[in-house]
Computed example of a mutant assay.
Amino acid sequence: MSKSPDASRRSERSRRAILDAALALVGEVGYNKLTIEAIAARAGVGKQTIYRWWPSKAAVLLDASLALSGEAAEEGEWTFPDTGDLAADLKTVLRATVDQFLDERYEAPTRALTAAGATDPELGAQFTGQLLEPQLALYEVRLRTAVDGGLLPADTDLRLLVEMLVGPLTYRWLLRTAPLTHAHTDALVDAVLRGVGYVTTRPAAAGT
């Protein structure tokens, strides 16, 4: 007696094919020319299958980017080290961010979602909340450790400090004002930490 097809596995294969198709196509044709019809054809599914799960091409692309980000996290591509040297840890992460910005797997979908989110407040909020905020929160956790250890002033505005680190890099990437390099991110980290009063030696405990 033959076993009946596993509908859940079939659905997951279709979903994965749709997400992969969206990522591939946005890199090939750009966001403006990306269509649900093209995604369906590339994935080998009917258009209505996509609309059953997502309301728009932007929603498909957001889920595809979230899946890609999740895979990167599982592979250890997005981790925040804590070696005890804050400057070195920030440089490691920002260098990895440069590498990701320059990786064709990430660049086209991230640019597309950034542009679409600028004109679609709901999509922008989802993009920020689901994709960006979890990454920015990792910065804050690491910076809080430095504050607690006395390496940063107790009144440091952690979110502002994160924006000072990530903002210039994102600006350079979005507007292509200059090449993205590891040397640039290293200089950025040094300048920002110097400006906020970072000390490289843990203060001695009172009474010692």
Results as ranks from 00 to 15, higher is better:
residue 160 L to M: 15
residue 5 P to Q: 06
residue 97 T to P: 15
residue 111 R to T: 02
residue 34 L to C: 07
residue 149 G to W: 11
residue 23 L to K: 05
residue 50 I to T: 12
residue 179 P to S: 09
residue 47 K to D: 05
residue 26 V to T: 01
residue 3 K to W: 06
residue 204 A to W: 12
residue 200 T to G: 00
residue 97 T to L: 06
residue 96 A to E: 15
residue 174 L to I: 00
residue 30 G to P: 00
residue 149 G to S: 07
residue 124 G to I: 09
residue 43 A to Q: 02
residue 189 V to M: 10
residue 184 H to T: 08
residue 131 L to R: 13
residue 83 T to W: 01
residue 184 H to Y: 08
residue 99 D to W: 04
residue 111 R to C: 09
residue 20 D to L: 03
residue 143 L to I: 10
residue 38 A to I: 02
residue 176 R to E: 13
residue 177 T to D: 06
residue 154 A to D: 13
residue 125 A to V: 15
residue 158 L to S: 04
residue 76 G to P: 14
residue 38 A to T: 11
residue 136 L to V: 15
residue 121 P to E: 01
residue 57 K to E: 10
residue 167 G to N: 05
residue 103 D to K: 09
residue 120 D to H: 07
residue 2 S to L: 09
residue 70 G to D: 06
residue 152 L to W: 00
residue 25 L to C: 13
residue 168 P to S: 02
residue 197 G to Y: 07
residue 199 V to H: 03
residue 86 L to N: 08
residue 117 G to C: 13
residue 124 G to S: 13
residue 77 E to M: 05
residue 48 Q to I: 12
residue 161 L to D: 03
residue 31 Y to D: 12
residue 92 T to R: 11
residue 34 L to F: 07
residue 184 H to I: 03
residue 32 N to H: 15
residue 49 T to A: 08
residue 67 A to D: 09
residue 194 R to Q: 11
residue 174 L to M: 09
residue 98 V to Q: 08
residue 40 A to G: 08
residue 120 D to E: 03
